[in-house]
Computed example of a mutant assay.
Amino acid sequence: MRATETTDAEDGLATRGWVVVRGGWDVPTHAQALRFAARFGRPSARDGGHPVWEVRPRPLGGTFSQRGGPVPLHTDAQYHPDPEDLVCLFAVRPAADGGHSLLLPASRALAALRARPDGARAEAALRRPQWSWITPAVFTGGRGAPPLPVLAGDTVRWRPDNLVPAEEGRAAAETFTDALARADPEEVRLTPGDVLLVDNRRTLHGRTAFGDPRRLMLRVRLWSR
């Protein structure tokens, strides 16, 4: 990857919150994925003990990255006090029947929330430090970060399936979940060798449904420089 391509990708991340680039390979290996990712930050291995996580359906399931079907819009590592800044997704074997990436900047998520009659009340609740998430059992289990806001400035942290909302936040969580379901994220179809880079603090990502058991992506989370 040339220096100008790295700069272009960084510009795309800064302006849009995500970018797709073509790697210098047909099918990336773990080593190639790490070398590529290191151009944009420091790979993190704190969840699972390895910086490269294979995103594939597994017979016993686990987190939603280990199952087929759709994945709702979310950010990664929201259960940590300090989520990694970037997520890299390397396409090894895209599904033959879907599994496309969905991307929604936090600004558009907020606009969808504010368009609702109860949006202002929900936004106020989402900006209060009363939200926490259970760490997925596949990593360490138990509770993660202390209560934190979902929305802070122009950033977002969100995942609906392991959310532990305070009692007074349940209505706001339902409102935000519904707003995201009605939002219009961009759908990106990756081909083998493509890399999707996502600003994990300013962009929510998800996935359309699929059933292909051979689907394989490589994920690397990064601390930006």
Rank of each mutant, 00 (worst) to 15 (best):
L222H: 07
T175H: 11
H100C: 06
L113V: 05
F139N: 04
A120I: 01
R159F: 14
L151T: 05
D47G: 00
L126R: 02
I134D: 05
Y79D: 05
D212N: 04
V156A: 00
H30A: 13
L103F: 12
P213I: 09
V188N: 01
P192S: 12
E84I: 02
A209L: 07
P213S: 11
A77G: 02
G24N: 11
L13T: 06
F176R: 03
P129K: 07
G62L: 11
D184P: 07
P136M: 08
T4L: 14
L103M: 08
A181C: 10
D212L: 09
D118V: 12
R16S: 10
F40Q: 02
G23C: 03
H80K: 08
G98N: 06
L126Y: 01
Y79E: 06
A3P: 01
R58M: 11
A95V: 05
R201T: 03
P160C: 07
L104Y: 07
G144F: 11
P192F: 04
R2L: 11
G141Q: 09
V150S: 02
A37G: 08
D199I: 08
E123F: 11
A95T: 06
R108T: 06
V27N: 00
P117K: 12
R39A: 14
V164Q: 10
P213A: 09
R46Y: 04
G193W: 05
E123Y: 12
R202W: 08
A171Y: 01
F176D: 02
P51I: 09
E84M: 04
D212V: 10
D11Y: 00
V52N: 06
A9Q: 11
P146G: 14
R127Y: 04
A45P: 10
D184H: 14
V19M: 03
A181F: 01
D97F: 14
L60E: 14
W18R: 07
P117Y: 11
S65P: 02
A172Y: 00
W25H: 12
T63A: 14
R214S: 15
P57Q: 08
N162L: 14
R170G: 03
P81F: 03
F176M: 13
W131Q: 07
G144M: 08
G61K: 08
G211V: 06
T135Q: 15
R93N: 09
A38N: 10
L102W: 01
G169K: 00
W53V: 10
R202H: 11
A3T: 15
L216P: 09
A3D: 15
E54W: 10
L34W: 04
H50Y: 08
W53I: 08
F40Y: 13
R128I: 02
F64T: 14
P57E: 06
R58D: 10
T203I: 13
V92M: 03
F40P: 03
D76N: 12
H30Q: 06
A38S: 15
A106E: 14
E10T: 15
Q130Y: 01
A106N: 01
P105T: 10
V55Y: 05
S44C: 11
R128Y: 00
G69P: 13
A125H: 01
G49I: 10
W53M: 06
E84Y: 03
D212H: 12
S224I: 04
W25P: 05
G142T: 13
L126D: 01
P192A: 09
L180V: 12
T63D: 15
P165R: 07
A106M: 08
L218G: 01
